[in-house]
Computed example of a mutant assay.
Amino acid sequence: MIRHLVLFKLDDGVSRDESRVAAGARAFEELGGLIPELTSWECGWNTTDRPIAYDFAINSSVADAADLKTYLEHPAHQAAAGQWREFATWVIADYPF
């Protein structure tokens, strides 16, 4: 199994209340039901307000590297990530568990 973690930081001046940000969050919320290779899917907004905190997180898992590749290349994932490129940066970690 591989855990896929992504932490998103909204760009300066961008609010989670903006319609484009809300649409991006919805796009990720829907991915868990669209991509069969995902064995688990969680995402949501950070609830703490600290300077080092990121704003939105994805915590998911897949069976193996091939399924991770399928997920990353899936059109729904590409479309969702494309939305976030307009207003955020992110960091990822993929590790076996």
Rank of each mutant, 00 (worst) to 15 (best):
G33L: 08
V91T: 15
W84Y: 09
R20C: 12
P75T: 06
E30G: 09
A63D: 13
R26W: 12
V21N: 00
P36T: 06
F97M: 14
E42G: 14
C43Q: 03
R85C: 13
F56Q: 01
A81S: 13
A63I: 11
D17V: 12
K69V: 11
P36F: 02
V21A: 01
A27L: 04
N59P: 06
D49K: 15
A88N: 06
A79C: 10
A53M: 07
F97C: 13
Q83M: 15
P75C: 07
D12M: 07
R85L: 13
D12F: 05
P96D: 10
T47F: 10
E37V: 09
W45Y: 08
S40L: 03
K9M: 06
K69Q: 12
A65H: 12
A66D: 08
I52H: 14
W84I: 03
V62Q: 02
A23W: 13
G44W: 02
S19E: 13
Q78V: 15
S60T: 05
N59R: 08
A53F: 10
I35H: 04
V62W: 00
T39H: 08
I35N: 02
A80E: 03
R3D: 03
T89G: 15
V62C: 04
Y71T: 01
D67Q: 11
W84V: 02
R50G: 14
A81Y: 07
P75D: 08
A66L: 11
G33T: 05
L10W: 00
D55E: 07
T48M: 13
A81R: 12
R26N: 10
N46K: 04
A53T: 06
T89H: 12
T39K: 08
E73H: 13
P96T: 14
